[in-house]
């Protein structure tokens, strides 16, 4: 039997509708059934939020199970000291309450971040000028260090020595900065 809507695909969905006592039979393919609204799938109403909180729950956070490990029980009791958001609330809404939540739930969020950001858990982008503090300096030193390694591998020792001196200068700057704070 072919689909009565598109007349192309075979009919795989068969319905009997009774509207005001009038009985009609519908034979359509799955695609037309979805388009015409004969079928509705629960998962199509899923928002990104539902998906996210699904990720949290997949770590096993049902409040009713007593079989969980000690560390899990502690996690469920975690509460952000700054804004008061509990881990359970966080898992339910899929959103953080304040900047401190990132610290509070730190050891629980890596799996979530990994799934959302293709395996990444660490920031590698812009650093703000003021709030970033001496991070700029640290980044610069790291960049020079990887450059130094490359130069040594290429046996360009003269150039490498220059870079090494630069790193020393920057490191002493960094130490002074930290001593002063």
């Amino acid at each position: 039997m072919e689909c009565q809507e598109c007349k192309k695909r075979p009919a795989t969905v068969h319905l009997t509708q009774v509207v005001n006592g009038q009985k009609t039979e519908v034979h359509v393919c799955e695609q037309c059934a979805k388009e015409k609204g004969y079928m509705s799938y629960g998962e199509e109403n899923f928002t990104l939020n539902d998906l996210l909180s699904g990720l949290f729950h997949s770590e096993g956070s049902s409040p009713f199970s007593n079989q969980k490990t000690q560390s899990y029980q502690q996690a469920s009791q975690l509460k952000c000291p700054t804004c008061g958001l509990t881990y359970q609330e966080f898992a339910r809404i899929g959103k953080f309450g304040c900047a401190s939540c990132y610290q509070t739930f730190d050891d629980r969020i890596n799996p979530i971040l990994r799934r959302v950001h293709s395996g990444n858990t660490r920031h590698d982008g812009k650093i703000p000028k003021r709030e970033g503090g001496n991070l700029h300096l640290k980044r610069e030193i790291e960049d020079y260090k990887s450059r130094l390694k490359e130069l040594i591998e290429q046996e360009e020792f003269e150039h490498a020595a220059n870079i090494r001196d630069k790193i020393r200068t920057l490191e002493s700057q960094l130490q002074q900065g930290e001593g002063g704070e």
């Binding site: 990104l48 899929g94 959103k95 953080f96 990132y102 969020i109 971040l113 959302v116 920031h123 812009k126």
Partner: peptide, 10 residues
């Protein structure tokens, strides 16, 4: 470690 902190982990 985490960069600019936002309400949604995405």
């Amino acid at each position: 470690k985490r960069g600019y902190l936002t309400s949604c982990p995405t």
